[in-house]
Nucleic acid binder design. Structure first.
Length: 893
RNA sequence: GCACGAGUAGCUCAGUGGUAGAGCGGCUGUCUUACACACAGUUGGUCAGGAGUUCGAAUCUCUUCUCGUGUACCA
């Protein structure tokens, strides 16, 4: 027994192996992209994770896919750039540091610290803790060019953002305006429409009596927001509503903070909804604002920025939180006898994606962008210049572009790209109060917009706001690259990301690409599934259903995690994450390791004597050739689970369960020429297979590649080209190959039937029985017969064309002929009779089904001949089997 | 409301007109000298329901139901 065998542990231990290769790949520069290379380019930019982020399952899925694509492209001889980096994530990062401040004793806010110092604190935090996710990606094995790691606020990137802002401003696409925006009363900033999630909520619909000022009656008005009544400036009814026509022009008494307000007519009011009368509160509702503008109504704002009531005219409510005030206002109204009724009601409430609280529609001064290149962006996807996978996301994308609204890009934050706009000091107050500012106003020289501050900064004040994080991310595919890189690698080849950021990021990058980089930013977009728990819920920290990928890596290895996840990752629908599946990934790695270990125990292959290949050798090599094709095809179509499944079933089923089991005896004794063929075949399969596997399980593939001695001149598998499938079986014609495959298939099928026979008679797997085969059909030689015995766990499979079986000998019809299992009289006659009877019933059923089908004239006439032929063959088989069973039954009697 | 997905074995998923599949789980055996993270056998399905097209439907059409996602909104 060779020494290696005792040295190698029986189970694969991924941890050390994975670390070793990660270090080596990086130190040898395997991931580094050379923009001067002659090779064709392949590039991906990573969706930059938040700098505050920690790795979650979504990242694992996403980055595993990118790594597969990148590694495969390298094997195919491409120069690969996978560009990594992180996003400054304005709100999340600022909130993170503010949380630290709040924990201090005494607690502080960012306002206590001051803008400049606070921003420095965030930078410090970023330097200290910001790289976590990058290290986690390295642990997953991601083959990013780490020398090119970028950050959306680094020295090169930041000026690009300002440059883009300036350009768009000068073009008139960016303007500052006093408008209704989504206001987050906790984070104290405006948000874009995309950052607001409309959520069905259980609330109450209050119906309130508004008395007519002339005392002639009352008007019933329903609302879900009684706390804003003090800001009502009118009550509106539909002009076509006959019930209220006579009231238009009259006035009602506002029930809180009492005042006379008019009854107006506006078509916006639905006649059928509620009472048909709607309170108009322009300061606190988007559509009310529009109605107010149309009708020249006053705007009364009674909410503070942080969502408290600001209405000294109503001292009972003044200063209360908006939700406390809601209940309180109803109490007050009820006390006045003005409450008609309260109903349970379900409506949609806009929730801030970041702080998880209801947003407030709020009138404020913000910066907006009219999107550039909308038409180009829409056409690129519509005409297939950019390919979306799955394709149906194209519809969602197109729909969003059709109804696109101006993008609110200013945030009341300190962490981020500060808006590169300065106001002349003496005019600052006046300019800030203007209802609209744009390129035309800049012409007067009171506004300065530019990448660098004005040359006389003492005469200017800079805008206080920062830009939406996505206003920098949308430049990611090109602002991360220098000139050389752009020339070689832009546009990028693939983008892999979640569909949840199709508007936030993907759509905007496409527009930015056309506007600023001269063309599309990528050729393909692959939208991954969303990883959910087994109950179908999104993974989230609060639910505690989100496993830590690092724990999973520690438990199952990065390769196991990658493989397990890809194996259950369907295309186009969500993945339900099951840790059991990751365990399968680990088990598979163990299987690979042991198969390689088995090979290592056998010593080197030799060419003396010349290898003698049998059907099973040719069969597996031919299947290996097919695997090359399936892999290329699957990856070409971005069908990652096809790729993974093909790898899995080839190795476990075809190579281990069938081939290895059929050739084990070759390695022990017997014909040295056959032994050489077997060793050669094992080496060939392993060498090709490891290369095909490397994109998804890079560490173990690399490790086994090295320990099996496949590395030439110490070259890692990483920097080795994909072995050519054409070289396999090049000396054989297709007839010989298909003949060998048919023989091998017949052998394996026969082995199955032999094992079934044993199992039926309750003979243990390892019971060394003797089979007798009466050859027919596929030719059988002694070599094949001995492989059959080996596979069936038998002592022998005797070939005897004149065999006369004793009565009642169990038999099976196999592709190699009739197979007998002589039992030496150990059979239980009664049990055997029952078994055969059952079997006969099954046959009868099949036969009648088949006969009915063949008796159907339209089937025989109209179905393809091959199908009919197949059905006839089946029927013949059933009939033969029935005859045999009947013979056996009568033999028993 | 509209749009788009999905519904196949106990679980996770393949399967785009020709006898319903895999892995896991369950149950039986087996520590057979690569692997018990394994091996062998076996048990599981009116393919969500209904109608239609077809010689033939998980697959194509229509419809209903359930779940998910996006989007628009009426207080």
């Amino acid at each position: 027994m060779p020494a290696v065998m005792t040295e190698l542990p029986k189970a694969y231990e991924p941890t050390l192996v994975e670390e070793k290769w990660q270090t080596r790949w990086i130190s040898e520069g395997c991931f580094h992209a050379d923009p001067h290379s002659d090779k064709p380019a392949y590039s991906i930019v990573i969706p930059p994770p938040n700098v505050t982020g920690v790795l979650h399952m979504g990242h694992v899925l996403n980055n595993t896919i990118q790594d597969i694509l990148a590694r495969r492209a390298r094997q195919e001889g491409k120069e690969v750039l996978w560009l990594p980096g992180t996003d400054h994530a304005g709100i999340a990062t600022q909130a993170r540091v503010e949380k630290e401040l709040a924990k201090e004793n005494p607690p502080r806010t960012r306002f206590d610290v001051g803008r400049e110092d606070f921003v420095n604190m965030v930078w410090d935090w970023k330097e200290k803790h910001g790289g976590i996710i990058i290290n986690q990606l390295k642990k997953l094995g991601c083959s990013c060019d780490w020398e090119r790691e970028r950050f959306t606020m680094d020295d090169v990137y930041a000026p690009e953002v300002a440059r883009v802002f300036t350009e768009l401003f000068n073009e008139g696409l960016i303007y500052r305006g006093h408008r209704m925006v989504n206001w987050d009363p906790v984070l104290l900033t405006a948000l874009s429409d995309e950052e607001v999630i409309m959520t069905p909520s259980r609330s109450k619909l209050y119906t309130i009596r508004y008395k007519l000022a002339d005392g002639s009656g009352q008007l019933l008005v329903s609302t879900t927001r009684p706390e804003t009544i003090m800001a009502d400036v009118a009550v509106a009814v539909n002009p076509k509503d006959p019930r209220f026509a006579h009231l238009i022009g009259k006035t009602v008494i506002r029930p809180l903070c009492e005042a006379e307000i008019p009854i107006i007519a506006d078509e916006h009011v639905e006649i059928d909804f509620g009472t048909g009368a709607l309170k108009i509160t322009p300061a606190h509702d988007r559509t009310d604002f529009e109605v107010g503008m149309k009708n020249h109504l006053e705007i009364i704002d009674i909410l503070t920025a942080d969502g408290h009531i600001n209405c000294p005219g109503c001292p009972e409510l003044h200063g209360l939180d908006r939700f406390v005030a809601r209940d309180k206002s109803i109490e007050l109204i009820e006390a006045k006898g003005l409450l008609e009724k309260v109903e349970d009601y379900e409506n949609n409430v806009g929730i801030s994606q970041r702080s998880d609280v209801p947003i407030e529609p709020r009138l404020s001064m913000q910066w907006f962008l009219k999107y550039p290149c909308v038409k180009e962006a829409a056409e690129a996807v519509a005409n297939g210049d950019i390919v979306f996978r799955p394709a149906h996301w194209g519809k969602t994308y197109a729909h969003w572009l059709e109804g696109i609204q101006d993008w609110c890009i200013s945030r009341q934050l300190w962490w981020g790209h500060r808006i590169p706009v300065w106001y002349r000091k003496e005019k600052a107050a006046e300019l800030q109060a203007a209802t609209k500012l744009d390129a035309e106003d800049a012409a007067a020289g009171d506004i300065y917009v530019g990448v660098n501050p004005p040359s006389d900064p003492e005469n200017w004040v800079q805008d206080e706001d920062a830009l939406d994080t996505w206003f920098s991310s949308w430049l990611w595919p090109f602002s991360t690259m220098d000139k050389e890189c752009l020339a070689k690698f832009y546009p990028t080849s693939d983008l892999v990301t979640g569909p949840d950021i199709i508007f936030f990021w993907v759509a905007r990058m496409i527009m930015a690409g056309y506007r600023f980089a001269g063309g599309k930013p990528f050729g393909n977009v692959f939208f991954t599934s969303i990883v959910r728990d087994l109950l179908g819920r999104k993974m989230s920290k609060s639910l505690g259903n989100s496993p830590d990928p690092l724990d999973l890596i520690a438990k199952y290895g990065a390769d196991g995690l990658r493989f397990g996840l890809m194996r259950i990752s369907p295309t186009g629908t969500d993945v339900k994450f099951d840790e059991k599946q990751i365990e399968e990934g680990k088990n598979f790695a163990n299987k690979l390791y042991n198969a390689a270990r088995f090979r290592m125990m056998q010593g080197a292959a030799s060419t003396e004597p010349a290898p003698k290949f049998t059907a099973v050798h040719i069969d597996i090599l031919s299947k290996l050739k097919d695997l090359h094709e399936t892999v290329a095809d699957g990856l070409g179509k971005y069908e990652f689970n096809t790729y993974t499944q093909a790898l899995y079933s080839f190795f476990w089923n075809e190579y281990c369960s069938l081939f290895l089991e059929a050739v084990k005896n070759d390695l022990r004794d017997g014909d040295p020429a056959v032994k050489n063929a077997t060793l050669f075949t094992m080496d060939t399969v392993l060498r090709h297979y490891l290369a095909l596997l490397a994109p998804i399980m890079p560490h173990i593939a690399e490790e086994l590649w090295a320990s099996l001695g496949f590395a030439r001149d110490g070259q890692p598998l990483m920097s080795t080209a994909l072995p050519q499938a054409d070289a396999l079986l090049s000396g054989l014609d297709t007839t010989a190959i298909s003949k060998a495959r048919a023989t091998a298939t017949a052998l394996y099928d026969t082995a199955n039937k032999a094992r079934n026979l044993k199992a039926e008679y309750n003979l243990a797997t390892n019971r060394k029985v003797k089979f007798v085969l009466k050859p027919a059909g596929v030719p059988v030689d002694a070599d094949l017969a001995s492989r059959l015995a080996l596979l069936a766990g038998a002592q022998s499979a005797e070939l005897n064309k004149d065999y006369e079986a004793p009565k009642g000998t169990p038999t099976a019809l196999t592709p190699l002929g009739e197979l007998f299992l002589p039992l030496e009289g150990l059979v239980d006659v009664e049990a055997e009779r029952t078994r055969i009877t059952k079997e006969l019933e099954k046959m009868a059923k099949e036969i009648s089904r088949s006969q009915a089908k063949l008796g159907n004239a339209s089937f025989v006439d109209r179905a393809p001949a091959a199908v009919v032929e197949q059905e006839r063959a089946r029927l013949a088989e059933w009939e033969t089997k029935t005859a045999q069973l009947q013979a056996m039954l009568s033999a028993l009697a």
